[in-house]
C-alpha cells in the first residue's frame, strides 16, 4: 500500500504545483499589457494625476511579486479583488453564476456519462458492423459541429417551431426544481450531444484496445461465453481508461459551457468571462480563468488517482 499512497501523493503534489504555475501565468500575463492596467482602464485621454491615483487605489505602486502574493492569498480564500468596471467584489459577481454553471455541467454529465459509456461498450462489441459505421459517422458529425450550431438548431426546432422548451434560460430563485430542469434543458442537451459523441468514441477505442490482449483470447479459449469475457475479463481492466474518458470529457464540458451559455443567455460564469473579456475587466477575467483551470486540473487529478487505484499491478505490489 505504501507505493500506492506515494503515487497518489505525488500526483496531488504535481497537480497543485501545476495550478501554482498556472496562477503565475494568469497573473503575470496581465503584466505583459502594453503600459499597465491603469492606462488600459482609463484609456488614451487619462491625465497623469488620474493615472497615479488609480494606480495607488489598485495597489499598482507595489512591485509585481508582492501584488501576486496578495492576489494569490486572496484567491485561496475566494477573494479575487474588485471589478474594474462596476467596482463590485468579484466574488459577488461570479459566486452565484459559478454555482449555475456547475449545475448546468452536472445536468449534462448526469445524462451523458451513463448514456455514452453504455453506447460506447455496445458499439465496441458490434465493431465493424453497419451499426458501428453509422455510429461512427454520426458521432464524427456531432464532434465536428460547433456548439453554437447545435444550440441554434435545437432552438429552431424545440423552441421556435414546436415551443416545447424556452430558448432563453433565465433563472430566478423561486423556481421549482422541475421548472429549472425544463428551463435549462436545451443548453444541457447541447452539451450532452457534444460530450456524448466524444465519450462514446473514446470508450469504444479503449475497449477495443483491451479486447486485443492475449488474456482475452485466453478467456475465449477457456470456453467463456462473450458476456463473461466482457464482464469478468475486460471490464476490471477497463476502469482506468473509462475513468480517464469521463474525466477528460467533464473537463471538456467546462469549456464547452462558455459558448453554450452565450447562445442560451444562461447566467453562468462563462457569460461573465466573455463580458469581462470584451470590457477588459481583468480581475474578473483572472478569477474566471483561475476557476476554470482549477476545475480542469482537479478533474485530471481525479482521473489519474482513479487510474492508479484501479490498477491491479499497483494495488497488489510484488
Amino acid at each position: 500500500m505504501g507505493t500506492l499512497l506515494f503515487l497518489i501523493a505525488k500526483r496531488l503534489f504535481l497537480g497543485l504545483l501545476t495550478l501554482l504555475v498556472i496562477s503565475v501565468i494568469i497573473f503575470f500575463m496581465v503584466e505583459l499589457l502594453p503600459g499597465d492596467i491603469a492606462e488600459a482602464v482609463l484609456g488614451m485621454g487619462a491625465t497623469e494625476e488620474n493615472l497615479a491615483a488609480l494606480r495607488k487605489q489598485m495597489g499598482l505602486d507595489q512591485p509585481a511579486p508582492v501584488r501576486y502574493l496578495n492576489w494569490l492569498s486572496g484567491a485561496v480564500v475566494g477573494d479575487f479583488g474588485t471589478s474594474l468596471i462596476s467596482g463590485e467584489r468579484v466574488t459577488t459577481i461570479i459566486g452565484q453564476r459559478f454555482m449555475n454553471t456547475l449545475f448546468l455541467a452536472a445536468y449534462a454529465a448526469v445524462i451523458a456519462v451513463p448514456f455514452a459509456i453504455t453506447l460506447g461498450v455496445i458499439v465496441a462489441l458490434l465493431r465493424n458492423t453497419l451499426f458501428d459505421r453509422v455510429a461512427n459517422v454520426v458521432t464524427l458529425t456531432s464532434i465536428s459541429s460547433p456548439e453554437f450550431f447545435l444550440g441554434y438548431i435545437l432552438i429552431l426546432y424545440f423552441s421556435v417551431q414546436t415551443g416545447m422548451f424556452p430558448a432563453i434560460s433565465s433563472l430566478n430563485a423561486d423556481m421549482t426544481f422541475l421548472e429549472l430542469l425544463h428551463r435549462t434543458f436545451l443548453p444541457a442537451l447541447t452539451l450532452v450531444l457534444v460530450v456524448t459523441a466524444h465519450m462514446m468514441r473514446m470508450t469504444r477505442a479503449a475497449i477495443i484496445n483491451l479486447l486485443a490482449s492475449p488474456y482475452i483470447e485466453m478467456a475465449r479459449l477457456k470456453g467463456m461465453p462473450p458476456w463473461k469475457v466482457i464482464v469478468k475479463h475486460a471490464l476490471p481492466n477497463a476502469w482506468a481508461p473509462i475513468i480517464n474518458v469521463v474525466a477528460l470529457n467533464l473537463a471538456y464540458l467546462i469549456t464547452g459551457v462558455v459558448l453554450v451559455e452565450v447562445v442560451f443567455v444562461y447566467p453562468g460564469i462563462g457569460q461573465s468571462l466573455v463580458d469581462a473579456v470584451s470590457k477588459r475587466d481583468f480581475p474578473v477575467v483572472q478569477a474566471c480563468c483561475l476557476i476554470f483551470a482549477a476545475t480542469f486540473i482537479l478533474l485530471n487529478i481525479a482521473a489519474d488517482v482513479g487510474a492508479i487505484l484501479t490498477n491491479p499491478r499497483l494495488r497488489h505490489p510484488k
Binding site: 501545476t18 495550478l19 504555475v21 498556472i22 501565468i25 494568469i26 500575463m29 496581465v30 505583459l32 499589457l33 473537463a251 467546462i254 469549456t255 462558455v258 459558448l259 468571462l273 466573455v274 469581462a276 473579456v277 470584451s278 477588459r280 481583468f282 477575467v285 483572472q286 474566471c288 480563468c289 476554470f292 483551470a293 480542469f296 486540473i297 485530471n300
Partner: peptide, 20 residues
C-alpha cells in the same frame, strides 16, 4: 507542455485576447 495543456484552450485564448 503539461502546464499549458492544463489550461482549457478556450479560456486561455480568451485570457490572451482580453490582454492583447
Amino acid at each position: 507542455a503539461d502546464v499549458v495543456m492544463s489550461i482549457p484552450s478556450l479560456i486561455f485564448a480568451l485570457l490572451m485576447l482580453s490582454i492583447f
